[in-house]
């Protein structure tokens, strides 16, 4: 196997910068931290990498209450108590009550895996620090069993962040970093074509013009992103709207701008210009 192991997939278009970062992370066995505007395909990247490499994908979707420990293992002490009182299981075997988390499963898997740690910035500020050693050494210990779990295969680890919180320096130092830039028009056309192969070029041009113009309007708080564009175009195609009308009226604007103030800001801009 050479260095360039990931080339994107039929449904995932990646630019050369991103490909290079993914391949560097795979080759060096380091986690890849992906940042970027919402809707630039950060999470889908993990799916595409797993698909391209033929590895199973283990997803860990982080929430504000997620603890680092949950990714390694949890010890279901309540179940054990319940079993000791009412069950007919043998409760002397603690192993039965240890449940491996996503990293735990990836480390013990027989074949290499892709691990997605999605939206790591949603968790507590200390969360990334709590995973430093595990991601570095790809090992952790289970205190209840007095055992150490060491990764058979270093999983390809992809971590996404929306930059809601700063990640600690010590954590950043250990990651390969990539920022997914918002696609330019050319690449956006490619992406849209993947989702809507049959879309009419004139309509596509009109929609693209409006889409990029709206993104430039000052004072918009949540600029529309790829997924919103695709949804909007899908509806435009279904409704069979005339491209000229799309240019003139921004029909179904709610699909692009989901905040009332943003629609108002666009309205102001249109009246002025």
């Amino acid at each position: 196997m050479g260095f360039d192991r990931f080339h994107g997939t039929a449904t995932y278009i990646a630019d050369p910068d991103l490909l290079s970062s993914v391949n560097a992370a795979i080759a060096l066995g380091r986690p890849l931290l992906v940042k970027g505007e919402p809707g630039t395909g950060k999470t889908r990247l993990a799916h595409a990498v797993a698909q391209a490499l033929g590895y199973p994908l283990l997803g860990w979707h982080v929430k504000s209450t997620t603890k680092a420990q949950e990714g390694l293992y949890t010890y279901d002490v309540v179940q054990r108590l319940n079993d000791s009182r009412f069950g007919d299981h043998d409760v002397s075997d603690i192993r039965r009550y240890i449940k491996l988390g996503v990293l735990g499963r990836a480390f013990t898997a027989k074949e290499p895996t892709v691990v997605l740690i999605d939206e790591i910035d949603k968790a507590d500020v200390e969360f990334p620090n709590d995973l430093l050693r595990e991601l570095d050494e790809m090992a952790f210990s289970i205190h209840e069993l007095d055992e150490t779990v060491t990764a058979r295969h270093r999983p390809v680890t992809i971590i996404t962040s929306n930059a809601e919180k700063e990640l600690p320096d010590a954590f950043l130092r250990r990651c390969i970093f990539h920022y997914i830039a918002f696609p330019d028009r050319e690449r956006m056309t490619e992406i849209v074509r993947v989702h809507l192969p049959a879309v009419d070029q004139v309509l596509l041009d009109a929609a693209m013009d409006r889409f990029f113009a709206i993104r430039k309007v000052g004072g918009i708080r949540k600029a529309p992103s790829t997924s919103e564009l695709v949804d909007w175009l899908t509806v435009l195609v279904k409704a069979g709207l005339d491209p000229e009308r799309v240019r003139r009226e921004d029909p179904f604007l709610g699909l692009l701008l989901k905040q009332e103030q943003d629609q108002a800001a666009l309205g102001t801009q249109r009246r002025r210009g």
């Binding site: 560097a24 992370a25 060096l28 940042k35 990651c175 390969i176 970093f177 990539h178 920022y179």
Partner: peptide
Amino acid sequence: RSVLCRSE
């Protein structure tokens, strides 16, 4: 860039 940068 991917190794030496920590942020955009």
